[in-house]
Nucleic acid binder design. Structure first.
Lengths: 373, 373
DNA sequence: TTGTAGGCGTTATCAC
DNA sequence: GTGATAACGCCTACAA
């Protein structure tokens, strides 16, 4: 009979090799293998092989209090930004015998808490959090319970958590530099939500960049989204365009916002890039397939995942390992959505006479440039 | 001291309630709660609450041989087709206390086997397979081990597995109908890989549809991709266009293939939809943002996931539950990439004189229509 | 209705 | 170097 229906257990292996289960255990575990004689180790290994022995991770977990499972909290897997990151995480974790439990929070606090609790109940060995808003109860909870945590694309001051994220400030500065180098001076910004660190940092990068080129920024030139979504991009794009009739370029804090902005341009009969240059952030998959292909600031998604995994594993293996704040450098990707000012239809040229803009536009107020805080 | 560092165990609860652990266990489990007096049940519940008791799922799993964990094998999370499906799965599974372990196989057989083995070792309670090629060793393995399995977007004859998929044949027929109703008669097909059921079914649907309109299909009018990817779409699109100079429409077996086909058209200086109508399959997220927005055949991704979860849970709860083959109806989504033949530049109009096509085009061979097998 | 006892499969800690 | 023993936390016959 080649195949017993009950899977072979350590006892079976021990019996087959004529040793005590404890010895078999030692022989099979790399860490304790050296405690056992070469010869018996061999015998046990053969027996295990022959019986098709697979250690039962559940039993092992119960004993070692290690589940080899990592909880990963992300806003929404449907956001194309995350799949590559998650793959990076999973691939790297798998290499070390860990698996990831993915939890979608939809940025809903109660849902997030639920998922978090669920995962704690399942005794995950650590967490990767990509959802943390700046002041988040689960951060405190995790800190108090001394859980290994790595923040992804988020930073949180005041907690002893490692994090890996993009240098958002530098990235957005590069976006402004790019537009400025194309000759644009009247540049609007669709800012990300200000309760997450990326939104704050990118806004700061925008101001910095403008400042660096001696460009002033009117209050009305910045519209803040309440979330990173196409809908918010549409809303903010509308507002921005209606309030600022002389813009020639828009920096969106994220690709989805930029996509929404495309829609706003469409509505107003404006074309990108002929009438308006637009640049996003993230270089989401497929964003290069839009028409026009979106210029954006790329960061290495997959690598973000692998680095986060490394940081977390490090922390799990050694609870005293130092907290590390890792920034990955972003990279500007110029595509068809940004063109030189010279190639841009002058803001005064074709707009007014075609009265494409809504009637309730307000006169442009020129204020003092807001500075980096 | 409000917070003991060691989490409360069942013994602790029992002690606090002044009962035996067994009684506490019964009181806390819905199924056995009725075996215990109302009053003690109350007392135990309070104690549990007070101590913040969380049952240890690892210990429970060891005892009950249920991990409440489901293995999900998909080709690649980066394929935008899958996130919504996976979310459907996860959401529904979570509702029943299960979590999903996602495994990316990259359609690599050895990798797939590895992931499968890993998950078996972790004692998952069942599998959802979205990767199964038509003849797949893990199907046999799962069948022999009598593992609960549900196939997703795949069907496999000869195995007692439930499955949920789209009616691919009907969907592709609808695509052909759509083009035919627009007046197109010279329609090419980029077929999906023929070792997965979707590729086969959609090809059959294509032939059926053409047949239904009395349209013949030359051998050269069908080019078969080796995988569902943009690259393959590009390659097949090139081949199709070079070999068939009079096509006015192309049916791609999948959106990614269609996107690749867009690229092939670009290369040849052909425009969609002016010179060529293109239709895809899947209605991937963001595919409506392409220029032109891709006409396609939509199916309910999220629902596919939830249905698969239901089928699997049913099978897990009751091993004797009947095998169910579930088909979800697809729906045609007409967008900008398909236009009436009347609006299409005649195939002979502008192409030859601009010699956009490669020199090595072969003369069109008209053969017998291939029929449904 | 509740308590007793045993075991799920593994590993840590003793002895020998 | 190896064996014996206990324990991780929970559940479930069975007995009372």
């Amino acid at each position: 009979m080649p195949h017993n229906d009950r899977p072979a257990t350590l006892r079976d292996v021990a019996a087959a090799a004529g040793v005590h289960p404890a010895t078999a255990s030692r022989a099979l575990n790399p860490g304790t293998k050296l405690l056992v004689s070469e010869e018996t180790a061999q015998r046990v290994a053969e027996a295990a092989e022959r019986l098709g022995y697979r250690p039962n991770p559940v039993a092992r977990s119960l004993r070692t209090r290690r589940s080899h499972t990592i909880g990963v909290l992300i806003p929404d897997l449907n956001n194309p930004l995350f799949p590559p990151i998650v793959r990076g995480l999973e691939d790297r974790l798998a290499k070390h015998g860990y698996v990831a439990l993915i939890g979608n929070t939809d940025l809903d606090t109660t849902r997030e808490q639920m998922v978090f609790d669920q995962m704690r109940a399942r005794h995950v060995d650590g967490f990767v959090l990509a959802t943390a808003t700046l002041h988040n109860p689960i951060l405190a909870e995790a800190a108090e319970a001394d859980l290994p945590v790595v923040l992804m694309n988020r930073t949180a001051q005041g907690y002893p958590f490692s994090s890996v994220s993009v240098d958002n400030e530098q990235g957005e500065r590069a976006a402004v530099d790019h537009l400025a180098s194309l000759g644009h001076t009247r540049i609007g910004h669709i800012a990300g939500p200000q309760d997450v660190s990326t939104g704050v940092a990118r806004l700061r990068g925008f101001f910095d960049g403008m400042d660096g080129h001696g460009l002033t920024v009117d209050d009305a030139q910045v519209v803040t989204a309440t979330g990173y979504s196409i809908e918010e991009g549409l809303r903010c794009g509308r507002e921005l365009l209606e309030t600022n009739r002389d813009l020639t370029a828009i920096v969106a804090a994220n690709d989805l916002l930029a996509v929404g902005c495309y829609g706003a341009l469409d509505e107003l009969g404006l074309r990108c890039p002929e009438d308006m240059s637009v640049i996003g952030f993230n270089d989401m998959p497929f964003i290069d397939r839009l028409r026009p292909p979106l210029s954006t600031v790329r960061f290495p998604h997959y690598k973000l995942g692998t680095e986060a995994a490394d940081l977390l594993l490090e922390r799990i293996e050694d609870a005293d390992s130092p907290v590390k704040i890792l920034y990955l450098a972003p990279e500007l990707v110029a595509r068809g959505s940004t063109v030189p000012l010279a190639a841009t239809t002058s803001a005064d040229d074709g707009r007014d006479d075609e009265s494409r803009l809504a009637a309730n536009t307000v006169p442009l107020r020129r204020g003092v440039a807001r500075r980096k805080r």
